[in-house]
Design a protein around this nucleic acid. Structure first.
Lengths: 162, 162
DNA sequence: ATTGAAAGCATACGTGG
DNA sequence: CCACGTATGCTTTCAAT
């Protein structure tokens, strides 16, 4: 069961994870040690999965986002293809989506040449692959992994117990 | 210019952002104060964009991932549609992709009913929208925003200067 | 959940490479 | 320009309540 205070803590951390505990305590109106205990519990429950730094892709020369739709000739190739796609360093996401039985892959590369190389040399030749449909993001208006915590209903909270 | 040590610091923080400075210093073999100075510089350069907590979507009842492909009747609607999509709480990503002049939207919802509601009530009726093609992720094999720092070449490093 | 004490850590500054 | 060591003031952590 997650109460309002823990939810508030998650919300604070989701925006600024590297703020001191005392500051969180001040914002939620508890003693620092109480906040710490709650955070530890959230970590043990697996609700908090870890802490990450947000890096700027542009500054690190990774500003090309592309989506690949990959269809298979043989369904048996599924596991191997999924593993191969997952292993590529430029791969950020690999989903299997309904509709046309295809993988939807999000890649982040440094430039078109690198993307081309990856698609041609590392993906297109994988056994079992039928087609690779590459689409480049011309503009990105939003990109986050944030989970909206305002929308968490009471039922949801109790389901987060185990 | 990013050198190996700063790169190593980024790599450490990308996995565990909430570890003490001293620990980072120990791992890279510098004094804590030197590490701090480098981190501050990376922040000021905009390479480090912030710190986030990674929450577990399953524990918070947000385990349904869907991708929408949205095409427009009129190109003039572009800005308004982009803004409306971005504003929805379940929206995690909004890209404009090459190919068929469509938005590619990643949504994370609690259940099919909620997704349906969002698509029908908040999206399908927006002025200027032609079609909404919804595809649900049946399986997710990889999902991360991590930038592969091993692949950073010397040229890239110098381009990160400004 | 709080308090308070002890340990550990962040940070500024002075020094030197 | 960058790293180090040190001193000071915080923060974290734990035991007791």
């Amino acid at each position: 069961m997650i109460d309002d205070i823990s939810l508030q803590i998650l919300k604070i951390l989701q925006e600024k994870a590297r703020i001191p505990n005392v500051e969180v305590a001040r914002q939620v109106g508890l003693a620092p040690s109480a906040v710490l205990e709650r955070i530890r519990k959230l970590e043990k429950q697996g609700i908090i999965d870890g802490y990450e730094v947000r890096l700027n892709p542009e500054k690190l020369n990774r500003n090309l986002v592309a989506f690949l739709q990959i269809s298979l000739v043989r369904p048996e190739a599924y596991e191997d293809v999924a593993a191969a796609l997952t292993a590529l360093p430029d791969t950020q996401e690999v989903h299997f989506v309904s509709g046309n039985d295809v993988f939807l892959v999000k890649m982040r590369s440094s430039c078109v040449a690198e993307l081309h190389h990856t698609v041609q040399k590392q993906i297109a030749g994988l056994p079992g692959i039928a087609r690779v449909n590459t689409r480049i993001a011309l503009a990105t208006h939003k990109e986050s992994a944030t989970i909206p915590l305002d929308a968490i209903s009471p039922e949801t909270r109790s389901s987060a117990l185990f």
